[in-house]
């Protein structure tokens, strides 16, 4: 099977890692690819380098001699290759062990476990069977999550149909994705929208049907210093931080009461069929309109007016059908 290839990759890595200078390409060929013809060597060596890089091995390329533009050389700097010394106290190691059980997504759960294995290999004693305390789960069950995730890793453009609030039909979008982030229970992707030539954020649950990678991998690079979370908060239209004020029928809508910052009991309400309470939510979830609608005539939006208008418009649309 692949034993020979593993040998070659590992020998290449060792050769570049132990050398303090750039190793000339010709020397690499002589030692590790002696049997290959010109073209086969170029192809094999390119692929091997890329495979090492995809594992996170920093293969550097440089000129052997600054005065002669002859052939390129390669090296791996040990400090950039190796995990720095990280000493974890027992309680810290326990927390790291728990982190492996947070992701409810196969790929990311595996990545967390790989990270823990590397930390263990560096000497940390991490018990992966530690007592299971109540802990959060991070799901990523939007059907297109993996497509965007893969595309970010290999820098591929993604094409998809997106349904934006306030529009009738989904529109085709092309995006260079930079990162995904979770906010208030939903996943977003941030990137460069190629048709608008500007950064945009998209909620994955609004992507219609399938998302597809188009074109070649490595089509772009992610701008230096991109902060995915900050960009999402800045760009997402539905991540309002404006407080939401609701009138709620006495005894109704317990989940909203739980989320409320303040509750003012026994206030005048829109009808006299019951008494009403006024709830203020300072950190309303992105799906607040959906949530309010679900309670029917037990909840009435007082402010902001944008939310009130949205709820009324959606109810009118149902009644008009």
């Amino acid at each position: 099977m692949s034993a020979q290839k593993t040998e070659r990759l590992l020998n290449l890595l060792i050769m570049l890692l132990v050398s303090t200078r750039f190793v000339p390409k010709s020397r690499i060929r002589e030692i590790l690819y002696a049997d290959a013809g010109d073209e086969a060597f170029d192809k094999m060596f390119d692929r091997d380098k890329e495979e090492l890089r995809s594992l996170g091995v920093p293969v550097e390329v440089g000129q052997i001699d600054v005065y002669f533009d002859d052939e390129p050389g390669y090296r791996i700097q040990p400090d950039e290759f190796a995990l720095p010394q990280i000493d974890l106290a027992a309680d810290e190691a326990a927390v790291v062990g728990l982190a492996t059980r947070v992701w409810d997504h196969q790929r990311l759960a595996r990545a967390t476990t790989e990270a823990v294995r590397k930390l263990s290999a560096a000497g940390a004693e991490i018990d992966l069977s530690a007592l299971d305390i109540a802990q959060p789960r991070l799901p990523a069950d939007e059907p297109t999550f993996d497509v965007f995730f893969e595309a970010i890793l290999d820098r591929s453009v993604v094409e998809f149909d997106y349904w934006r609030t306030g529009t009738d039909a989904p529109a085709r979008r092309r995006l260079q994705p930079w990162g995904v982030t979770r906010y208030s229970g939903r996943w977003y992707v941030v990137g460069l929208d190629l048709d608008r030539d500007d950064e945009r954020v998209f909620r994955l649950s609004r992507v219609q049907g399938e998302a597809r990678k188009v074109g070649r991998p490595g089509a772009y690079s992610i701008p230096e210093g991109t902060d995915i979370s900050a960009a999402t908060r800045r760009l997402a239209p539905d991540l309002s931080t404006e407080p939401v004020v609701l009138l709620v029928r006495d005894g109704a809508a317990l989940p909203l009461r739980r989320a409320a910052e303040t509750v003012e009991a026994g206030v005048p309400g829109p009808d006299g069929a019951s008494t009403w309470d006024r709830l203020t939510l300072t950190r309303a979830s992105v799906g607040i309109a959906d949530e309010v609608l679900g309670f029917g005539d037990a909840v009435c939006v007082e402010s902001p007016s944008s939310l009130r208008d949205q709820v009324v418009a959606r109810l009118r649309a149902v009644v008009a059908r």
Partner: peptide, 27 residues
């Protein structure tokens, strides 16, 4: 001896770990 340190975390490994830790922290 030249392989006695593990490789650094890949961006995915580091992100997955950090996000998981933050989730643990919040609850």
């Amino acid at each position: 001896d030249y392989l006695d340190r593990p490789l650094r975390l890949t961006p995915v490994e580091a992100s997955a770990m950090i996000v998981a830790l933050r989730a643990l922290r919040s609850g």
